[in-house]
Amino acid sequence: MQAWMWLGPVIMLFVVLGFVTLAILFERKVIGWMQSRIGPNRVGPWGLFQTVADVLKLLLKEDIVPQKADETLFKLAPVIAFVPAFAVVAVLPFTDSLVFADIGVGLLYFIAISSITTIGILAGGWASNNKYALIGAMRSAAQMISYEIPLVMALVGVIMAAGTLNLSGIVEAQKEMWFIVPQFIGFVVFFIASLAELNRTPFDLPEAESELVAGYHVEYSGFRFAFFMLAEYVYVFAMSALTTVLFLGGWNPLFGFTFLPPLIWFLLKFSLIVFTLIWIRATLPRIRVDQLMQLGWKVLLPLALFNIFLSALLKEIPGIGSYY
């Protein structure tokens, strides 16, 4: 038990880092393919070590702290941004046995911890003492507040149906029917809101390179920058895993194809989500900041509320009620 307590998280860290390495490569490859290019292919076979080389380069780079920056905060910010990203991974159930912390309020824990990252971003943007960084950080905070609410609201339907906040419990509840079907509105709202939470295209306003150069991390270099990047991709990992758990039935197989082990099922669904994220990034332009707010408050939030209402209503209808 003791060894497991220590080794587990360390192994997990490497798994997550491995995923990040692969995800970045995969992202660049897929986007390359979609743009009639072949993507990275210079480092290692099939470009496999491209990300490794990139990270290595970042680690070797000079660490620059701008003279007018708030040094303590500047140095602290990447840590504040990264730690929660990794901490949320703890509650994710990959299979019924592979879960680190099977706590009762897993979902709540995930949502709560993940919002801390924004503080890191805000701090980083502010401490940089750069106008672009400040605007990026402000946007990030505004975006987080506006999208956290529909995100959580969209989940209420799922929680109602599963009757638990425990993530393993939610997966168990999807044995018969994945929540993506009865909770479709919830899924759409959740997916859009999670895109915004991840700061990914079309909601990548905090770092919008064509407007704000690089947004909140414009002054960061070397390994501090790497930390921000890492946090971002660990969130991609976590969010995709969460989506899989909440709406795609986690490790539950499709059509009763049980010959594939649960972990493979999980990974398949998970990869699908990651691919969709990349695909969206390759296609869509960036939404404008005021339209982003409108979308969050005027479209997603009412939709999410409506979904709660609908779920509650349908729950009472005999026959299909069991799915809600």
Partner: peptide, 20 residues
């Protein structure tokens, strides 16, 4: 419109690459 655009990028994914 969004979906149409997604279709275009997906189609291009399998097309021949043009880089040298």
């Amino acid at each position: 419109g969004l979906l149409k655009g997604m279709g275009v990028t997906l189609k291009n994914m399998t097309k021949k690459k043009v880089t040298y």
